[in-house]
């Protein structure tokens, strides 16, 4: 695999390059002032996209048609329900986290049940699931904004040795994901299924089991991300997951993972997540209006995908 990567260029280099260029252009304008603040903010916000994006990447690796659109609703539900259970008490932090993970497992289970038992395509199954989950969040929340326990609020908003704590959590999860993907049998299996499901079946891979675990993994990561995000932003809001629908898919694609499946990488997710945050802050720094900003964001994302995609086409 190493020689393979060397031969064809690492697909994740492009997202890191783009993130660095944008970061550089931003500090060029501020004249170096606020460099540390910008970098810390970038890592903090990127952390949430990284955690969600890794789950989405595993699902997309399963091959054409595999996608989890219930990610934002899962984040919202996990955030609201966990905060409600913890009820601002520090002693309830661990049960809250366990509940969030449990919600993720439940959503993943329902997603794959719909896909497998009712033979619904993943894009529709997970989207309809997301309506049910979102309704669940609205029902439990009832418009109340419960504050997170103080220890957790402090933890998510502070830094250790200059590195934001949430970024450290995301980094640990990334390492776990990298090991899963590159070093384990499970990683080989999802890549094989993504390349050809009939071939994977004939090679003796437990195809359904592997796909099921992958949908569970994605939903659990989404709920952990929702739990952290709710604590970070001082309470769960019903629309808090909304932007992560596009974000989770965009970071996977920009990060150099093959949309057709079978080929994915973890470092690219980080580069892409940093890039996505930095583009917005760069355009803010330049003082552009909201409309222009959105158009520019779109154009920049398209050009990065084209650049990365063009390289991959040359294989």
């Amino acid at each position: 695999m190493n020689t393979l990567v060397r031969q064809f260029g690492k697909p994740w280099v492009w997202s890191w390059l783009a993130a660095f260029i944008v970061w550089f252009l931003t500090i060029l304008v501020t004249g170096g002032a606020g460099t540390l603040g910008l970098s810390q903010a970038a890592f903090t916000f990127a952390a949430f996209s990284v955690i969600v994006g890794i789950g989405q990447m595993f699902v997309i690796t399963l091959g054409p048609g595999n996608i989890d659109l219930s990610v934002p609703a899962t984040m919202t539900l996990a955030g609201t329900v966990a905060l409600k259970l913890m009820n601002v008490e520090n002693g309830m932090i661990l049960p809250g986290l366990l509940l969030a993970v449990f919600i993720g497992l439940g959503v993943g289970l329902c997603n794959y049940t719909l896909i497998k038992a009712l033979r619904i395509p993943p894009i529709i199954a997970t989207l309809s699931m997301s309506f049910i989950v979102q309704s669940g969040a609205i029902w439990t929340n009832r418009g109340l904004r419960i504050k997170p326990p103080s220890v957790l609020a402090d933890f998510t908003t502070s830094s250790t040795l200059g590195v934001p704590n949430v970024a450290i959590v995301a980094f640990l999860i990334s390492i776990l994901a990298w090991i899963l993907l590159e070093k384990t049998i499970y990683g080989r299996w999802i890549s094989a299924i993504g390349q050809s499901m009939p071939a994977a079946r004939m090679a003796g891979i437990p195809v359904d089991g592997t796909r099921f675990v992958t949908y569970l993994f994605c939903a659990v990561l989404a709920s952990i991300s929702g739990y952290l995000l709710a604590c970070f932003s001082g309470g769960a809001a019903l629309n808090m997951g909304a932007e992560y629908l596009l974000m989770s898919i965009a970071v996977v694609v920009i990060g150099g993972t093959a949309v057709a499946g079978g080929d994915s990488n973890v470092p690219g997710i980080w580069g892409a997540s940093l890039f996505m945050f930095l583009v917005v802050s760069m355009l803010n720094t330049y003082g552009l209006g909201a409309g222009i900003r959105l158009i520019m964001t779109g154009l920049i994302i398209i050009s990065v995908i084209m650049l990365a995609g063009g390289r991959r086409g040359m294989r």
């Binding site: 890549s191 094989a192 390349q195 050809s196 071939a199 079946r201 004939m202 093959a258 079978g262």
Partner: peptide
Amino acid sequence: RLNGVFELWSILRNFSIA
């Protein structure tokens, strides 16, 4: 091509998968 090789992979990975 239908249910044999994994096209993105090396020979070694294609061999060892089972």
